[in-house]
């Protein structure tokens, strides 16, 4: 219960940072933090039904649930893809406009 509350707190830090910060790199930090929090939540929940790693050949037979772990492998890879593409876009915007601040970018590109 406390572990889940702390993971929720980490997710809320991520989403508050995504909205509140104006620098594009800080927003990418926030996306990575939200990804980490969700992955942590699933593995935490799946580990509550056993106490051995899901590798056959061990002594006992009460494994941890392997399904959330398999799903979270995909989630981590997709998270790093999002970070890489976001940073490539930020680099391109910096080359074109000279700043990474979203308010400045809105003003410079004429969308205000």
């Amino acid at each position: 219960m406390i572990a889940r509350a702390l993971v929720l707190c980490m997710f809320l830090i991520g989403i508050a940072g995504l909205v509140a910060k104006r620098n594009l790199v800080k927003k990418t930090f926030a996306l990575a933090i939200m990804n980490s929090a969700v992955v942590l939540l699933f593995v935490l929940e799946g580990s509550s039904i056993g106490d051995e790693a899901p590798l056959l050949g061990g002594p006992g037979a009460s494994f941890v649930d392997p399904v959330p772990q398999a799903l979270m492998l995909t989630a981590i890879v997709v998270g790093v893809c999002v970070s890489a593409l976001a940073l490539a876009l930020a680099y391109r915007l910096y080359k074109a406009y000279g700043t990474l601040d979203v308010d400045e970018l809105k003003r410079l590109s004429g969308h205000e």
């Binding site: 593995v43 106490d51 051995e52 790693a53 590798l55 941890v64 772990q69 981590i76 790093v80 970070s83």
Partner: peptide
């Protein structure tokens, strides 16, 4: 939490490639 596959992936990806980019 007894998840060695996810631990290797997070260590290699998070502390490796993500920090580099």
């Amino acid at each position: 939490l007894r998840a060695p596959d996810v631990a290797i992936t997070e260590a290699a990806v998070g502390a490796g490639v993500s920090t580099i980019i």
